[in-house]
Amino acid sequence: MPGTLSQAPPSAMAITVNGEARSLPASLPLSDFLAQAGLDLRKVAVERNEEIVPRSAYATTLLEPGDQLEIVHFIGGG
């Protein structure tokens, strides 16, 4: 299927998400990446290169090659 991550063109962009290497077909806004990942945006928080990305900035944050994303949520803990 064209456009899937595994068949990304050579110009694909490599980023790291939660410690795992990922390849994106092209640069895209963080909001698009999160939507494609199927995440409920009200329940997660995102750090990009160790800086918090406020929810209000998801749409205007363009992912760049080498970006390191941490996407977290709340789980049970003591």
């Binding site: 939660n18 795992e20 409920d40 996407i71 977290v72 789980i75 049970g76």
Partner: peptide
């Protein structure tokens, strides 16, 4: 109390 952890991207 709650903990903060990475989301599981394979099962969002």
């Amino acid at each position: 109390t709650v903990a903060v952890r990475r989301v599981n991207l394979s099962d969002p």
